[in-house]
Nucleic acid binder design. Structure first.
Lengths: 151, 151
DNA sequence: CTTATACTGAGAATGAGTCTCATTACAAGT
DNA sequence: ACTTGTAATGAGACTCATTCTCAGTATAAG
């Protein structure tokens, strides 16, 4: 997914505002990370980041991801395998779910219909209410084999 | 959730059969783990296991969990936090989803209506088909605050 | 230009999870 | 009961993703 210039502008303004709210600066390293995440458009692992941003030290990448999470710009995705992946917060992109390949670990984004989402939200609230649980959001992951691994 | 004697018998027979198929024995340590998982009825962390089974070495607990996963008796659940949790395979219990507390990390099981599940399965297949993805199953996690952490 | 505070890189430290190895338990046959 | 092959076990060493520390650098505000 390649974002347009206008999108990028809006995105970066939003990110900068959220960082400022947390007394954080929008520096070059952080911006490079946000650009990468926006450009990829799906959750990326730390080694993906290291490949695409070789000049960015791992310790800084991790620290930036923690900071960006704290500012509500990034969220961590627990995949089936052992390593974490990261993507832009959902309100900076759009609500979506994940297809997780159980063979190669690849994660793909999918956007369900809004009528489906409405029903999910309604059911989630019913389930949660009975237990005194206050839902903030949900995630739906589909496990299976990606096109590449089926061959 | 405390299982009845009859349930336990059926469960243990099934588990033993699956282990035998993988050339594994159903030993006391493995049985203790399965008993714990059946008794808890929700995903447990390694430290939970260490607390409840202090005489079981961590290395053996991890090894048993790997073996039991390989035999299709246990599945690993990636929670929001950094540690893995483990529960009995879904076909040994029943299909369900999870409420994840973003504050304390607690995981609670919930079972949605079967009509809801049917719609989820149908939609999942539609989404996956377009991308050549072969779905094996899905998981729906609700993120929010548990009753305890709301107070 | 000063001061306060945030940022950065490099490497050390942490710790969940895995592996090794020497030993023990078990099942099946004799 | 004895042997033999194979699986299971405990203890601790080890791996490696992630976090922390620290010393030095950049930046915004007055």
């Amino acid at each position: 997914m390649v974002t347009t210039a206008e999108h990028d502008e809006g995105l970066h303004e939003l990110v900068e505002a959220r960082l400022r709210r947390a007394d954080l600066r929008y520096t070059a390293g952080r911006r490079a990370l946000v650009d990468l995440l926006a450009d990829e458009g799906h959750p990326v692992s730390i080694s993906d980041i290291a490949d695409r941003l070789p000049q960015l030290p791992r310790s800084s990448a991790y620290r930036h991801l923690v900071d960006l999470q704290g500012a509500g710009v990034v969220r961590r995705v627990a995949a089936g395998d052992e390593f974490a992946r990261f993507e832009l917060a959902e309100d900076l992109t759009e609500h979506h779910h994940h297809l997780l390949c159980v063979s190669c670990g690849k994660v793909t984004d999918v956007t369900p219909s809004s009528s489906f989402e409405r029903q999910v939200s309604r059911t989630v609230e019913e389930l949660a209410d009975d237990l005194g649980f206050e839902p903030h959001g949900h995630r739906l992951d589909v496990l299976g084999l990606c096109a590449g691994c089926r061959a």
